[in-house]
């Protein structure tokens, strides 16, 4: 195979050169594609002197996002960059990163996630190589009804971003609907859903500013992202070249965190410019909201421990890392 890979002229590679395909769900205009993944692929190729070539395929060209992880495991392509929420139930411990009110910024969240990578690799990524784990910008609550308090969320139809938030919605008395981000524009526009937990960057990237009236100004959660690689493919890379890749990956948390924080600021500014109403809850209402979300964490930890997973351990480590960043 590897018809797409070209070795630089006049070079006599030492090890067998390898070519990997990297699939992701963002468009070829997305800053993560242009500023992170493509430069990463170029740098790997250059620094390994052509021994490792990575072809980056944006826009789900190799298959839809829910299938990315399985495709990496099966070897349909070697590398995948995807939201962890697309494979519900598969990475239960990773969902600690989507806890409500864990992180203040994407940068903090990404640095903490990086610290947790080795443990996560050990506990739930044994059938693949976890190259990197992090997350998007911090999500707020997009809502197309006038809401001034927690009680106002009862009875609304909200899109749920994942298993943990299904429980939150149940406690709020809201009806949860599950649909992919790509359908959210239509669903908000048509009133199929009243709102969704969503990153402000989506106001720009998914044009959601056109169909969003209000945003509750609470920084609720980070949507975890993972960058995974097929085990056999990883093993084909020489130890030296693996180190080259690891060194480049070590820059991801700071770069991606800063990138998403910038997207977040840009999204908020753009939203305000477009006349979206940013609702601020009173301190009392905010406390009420926390009173609803806090028990979710405890329940999650208990659930994990009951299943024999390292719930408590990971939570305590997370708190430690948050302290450090």
């Amino acid at each position: 195979g590897g018809g797409g890979g070209e070795t630089p002229e006049g070079e006599e590679p030492v090890a067998d050169p390898v070519t990997f395909s990297l699939s992701h769900f963002m468009s070829n205009q997305h800053p993560l594609h242009t500023n992170v993944l493509v430069p990463f692929a170029d740098a790997v190729n250059e620094q390994t002197e052509g021994r490792v070539t990575i072809n980056v395929y944006p826009s789900n060209e190799l298959g839809p996002p829910p299938t990315t992880v399985d495709s990496v495991v099966s070897g349909a392509f070697e590398m995948g960059f995807v939201l962890a929420a697309y494979t519900p139930g598969r990475f239960p411990l990773t969902s600690i990163l989507e806890f409500p009110f864990m992180f203040e910024t994407a940068l903090q969240g990404n640095l903490v996630a990086a610290d947790m990578r080795d443990d996560l690799q050990k506990y739930e990524y044994s059938d693949m190589k976890l190259l990197w784990v992090g997350g998007t910008d911090i999500a707020k609550i997009f809502i197309n009804k006038e809401v001034s308090d927690v009680a106002g969320l009862a009875g609304l139809k909200l899109r749920s971003p994942g298993l943990l938030y299904n429980e939150l919605y149940a406690k709020l008395g809201a009806t949860e609907l599950s649909l992919p981000v790509s359908d959210l524009y239509d669903a908000l526009d048509r009133g199929i859903v009243d709102g969704s937990l969503m990153s402000p960057s989506a106001l720009v990237s998914f044009k959601l500013s056109e169909v969003t009236d209000n945003i509750i100004d609470l920084d609720v959660y980070m949507n975890p992202l993972i960058f995974v690689m097929n085990n056999d493919a990883w093993a084909k890379v020489s130890a030296d070249d693996q180190q080259v890749m690891e060194d480049l990956l070590a820059e991801f948390p700071a770069v991606i965190g800063a990138q998403y924080d910038a997207e977040f600021e840009h999204g908020v500014a753009f939203g305000k410019e477009q006349g979206i109403n940013f609702i601020t809850f009173s301190a009392e209402e905010e406390a009420k909201f926390h009173a609803i979300t806090d028990p979710l964490k405890e329940k999650w930890i208990a659930d994990m421990d009951a299943k024999g997973l390292a719930g408590t351990e990971m939570y305590e480590k997370a708190l430690q890392y948050i302290e450090a960043h």
Binding site: D70, T87, P88, S160, G162, N166
Partner: peptide, 18 residues
């Protein structure tokens, strides 16, 4: 069938109804 076997061991479920 191989795919089904892999999915069975990965515990992947649907988001709402599990």
């Amino acid at each position: 069938l191989t795919f089904a076997g892999r999915m069975a061991s990965s515990n992947q479920i649907t988001p709402v109804l599990h």
